[in-house]
Amino acid sequence: MTQPPLVFDRQRLAINLARRDGNADFVTRLVVDDLADRLAPITRRFGTALVMGPDPRLLPSTIHSAEGPVALTPMSTLLDIKGYPRVDPEHLVLPRTDHDLIVSLLDLQTVNDVPGFLERLQRHLAPDGLMIAAAIGGRTLTELRDAFLAADVEILGGVAPRVAPMIDVRDAGSLLQRAGFALPVTDLETHTVRYASPLALFDELRALGVTNPLTERDGRMLTPRHLMRAAEIYAQRYGDPDGRVRATLEILWLSGWAPDPIQQKPLRPGSAKKSLRDVLGDKSS
């Protein structure tokens, strides 16, 4: 089989994340809160459930569905943290294959083999088990990409790879179907975050441990001149009248169910007993 390209340097990502020392960040808090809102209306009891993510210390151990509390087993997909099981999303093997619920939070944008990861998640679900995943969406930090692109062209005479590729919502549904999920659903949550200055945004990205995780990153050091020029362009193009700057954060949510004969199936084309004209009336006159 053809191996997927190694887009992400996962060892570098682990080193970056380890520097945070388990400190929570607003992105993870936002995703965990949104997960709670999404699971709350589901009328299902989840007896065997787990949640995985790069830093397991930031993951919830309990969440609620409409049927009551759900006990989650947090698992790490990147950091080696004492007391937490570690799994490799590139070659995922879990202790059991009959989970009622598997949640993946912020893994997909650091995995090289996304289709394979989703397929392995599906194989570890019980029939009619649910998978929910959150990832950073494709329009996240478009302002930052634009500013560095302009600075690179101006100073380097070309473009340097700095921002990781992200999953587009138009591709997410087909990825779920390809992985064998039934009833796939994808949607986006878009947030505009404001910072005192571009440098404040740069500092937060360093604190989050997500600075340039690409395998093919540019080996040249980012000079202060280059950084300041990118910050100037950012402020010029995306500054607000009060002096603050905008940054787009897009969270992509994916969900799907392991196939099961009891699931509701779409009607066969042509099987409807009433036509649309019967319902709406004849509008030709």
Rank of each mutant, 00 (worst) to 15 (best):
L130I: 06
M75P: 04
D55W: 09
D146R: 11
A196R: 12
E90Y: 04
A235R: 15
R57L: 11
V70N: 01
L205H: 09
L175K: 12
L254V: 02
P41N: 11
L101I: 13
R225N: 10
V7F: 06
L121M: 10
D260I: 09
S284P: 01
D80F: 04
D218I: 00
G129T: 07
A230M: 12
T192K: 05
G53L: 11
L183W: 08
A135V: 06
T186K: 00
R217N: 04
E143A: 04
K283M: 13
D9Q: 02
P213S: 03
P224C: 12
D152G: 09
D9H: 07
F148D: 11
D25M: 03
D34E: 15
A179Q: 13
T186I: 00
S255N: 05
L280P: 00
P127W: 07
T110A: 09
R38A: 12
I167E: 08
M52V: 12
R19F: 07
A164W: 02
T43W: 12
F8W: 13
L222D: 09
D242R: 11
L39D: 07
P261I: 08
S76T: 02
A147E: 11
P95E: 14
P269S: 15
R10W: 10
L156S: 01
V210A: 12
R96N: 02
E154L: 13
F8H: 14
D21A: 15
R277L: 14
N23M: 13
A71I: 09
R170G: 01
E119A: 15
R29E: 15
V169N: 03
V32I: 11
Q3N: 05
L144C: 07
V51Q: 02
E90M: 05
E154I: 00
G116N: 01
D88W: 04
P74N: 11
L13N: 08
L101T: 00
V31P: 07
L222G: 04
T215M: 15
A196C: 09
R86Y: 04
P224L: 11
A247Y: 01
T215V: 14
E90A: 08
G129A: 08
G116S: 01
A71D: 10
R57E: 03
R12V: 04
R96H: 11
Y234R: 00
I81N: 01
P89R: 02
V51G: 05
R44F: 10
F181C: 08
M52Y: 07
L144E: 02
L141H: 08
A182K: 09
V27F: 10
R244I: 00
L176S: 10
W257I: 05
A179K: 14
D107P: 00
T248P: 07
R29M: 10
E250P: 07
A135Q: 06
L183Y: 03
M75H: 13
F148L: 12
T223R: 07
R86T: 13
R217E: 05
L92S: 05
P269M: 14
L199D: 13
D80Q: 02
E216M: 03
G281S: 03
D80I: 00
D33T: 14
R20N: 05
Q236C: 09
R38V: 11
T223E: 03
T211R: 06
V32A: 11
